[in-house]
């Protein structure tokens, strides 16, 4: 497997955007949502690999389906959202295992950045920058709503609208990220750099910038380790980010 410059660029941008979004997800106590959605993406990735179209596109279509199903079931049942997400998540996982051709299964689960084409890279960079931009737009509003929903509403913030945008952005990042670290590990790429950043940050500015930086750095170093060792890229990226997390515990503020 060959790694070239646009693999690096893709990983830097997707990793940074994932870190940024992750910082918001931790504040909203939705750390495991990325994990669950990563699995929801699997059947879409399987179909894409089977029929030969873009993996991220397949993932995104199934993510939208998954988010819609949860929203629909919430209206049809009294069960907690978390439980419904659990049902959709195992359904997707089971379907994903059946659909995905066996030789491709490992690639779907742990990602393979060397398969990213030039076009993929361009699209990934554009979408990642869009995610950074959109998250920046909704960040303060969502933080305020997490401090006090009432205060947010009395300041004319439309919480439902912002939450919908937020969920769509998560879907985009998961769809992009499954190419880099795979469906099993995307949850980690979203959460671990942000968690490390939170350990060492005293204010929002530090928290956000360090989450982005650690997300990108983990991806770059992970690819570097792959070039040296030849082990799969996805796990190496996540191990790098967990390494930063452990370091951050030592410097915890």
């Amino acid at each position: 497997m060959d790694i070239n410059l646009f693999n690096f660029i893709t990983a830097i941008f997707v990793g940074g955007a994932a870190g940024y979004l992750g910082s918001l997800m931790i504040t909203k106590r939705m750390a495991l949502v990325g994990d669950a959605l990563g699995h929801v993406a699997l059947p879409g990735m399987g179909l894409a690999l089977l029929l030969g179209f873009n993996v991220s596109l397949g993932a995104f279509v199934f993510l939208l389906l998954g988010v819609f199903s949860v929203w629909f079931l919430e209206r049809k049942s009294d069960l907690p959202t978390e439980t419904l997400v659990g049902v959709i998540f195992v359904l997707s996982l089971a379907l994903g295992f059946l659909i995905t051709p066996e030789p491709e299964l490992l690639h779907a689960l742990v990602g393979d950045i060397s398969r990213v084409s030039l076009l993929d890279a361009v699209v990934s960079v554009i979408l990642s920058v869009s995610v950074l931009f959109v998250v920046n737009k909704i960040y303060k509003k969502i933080i305020l709503a997490s401090l006090s929903e009432d205060l947010a509403i009395s300041n004319k913030i439309d919480i439902k609208k912002n939450n919908l945008i937020y969920l769509l952005v998560i879907a985009v990042i998961v769809a992009l990220g499954v190419k880099v670290v795979g469906s099993l590990l995307i949850g980690a790429l979203v959460i671990v750099p942000a968690a490390a950043s939170r350990n060492i940050s005293r204010n929002m500015r530090q928290y956000v910038l360090r989450a982005i930086f650690l997300g990108s750095l983990s991806c770059v170093l992970g690819i570097g380790l792959f070039m040296i060792t030849g082990f799969p890229v996805g796990p190496l990226i996540i191990l790098t980010s967990v390494f930063f997390f452990i370091i951050s515990l030592i410097f915890k503020k």
Partner: peptide, 17 residues
């Protein structure tokens, strides 16, 4: 209208100054 809520800040550790 200005509003001062009774319940605020569920997460004491939020990195926000």
């Amino acid at each position: 209208i200005g509003y001062v809520p009774q319940k605020f800040l569920a997460d004491k550790n939020i990195p926000l100054n």
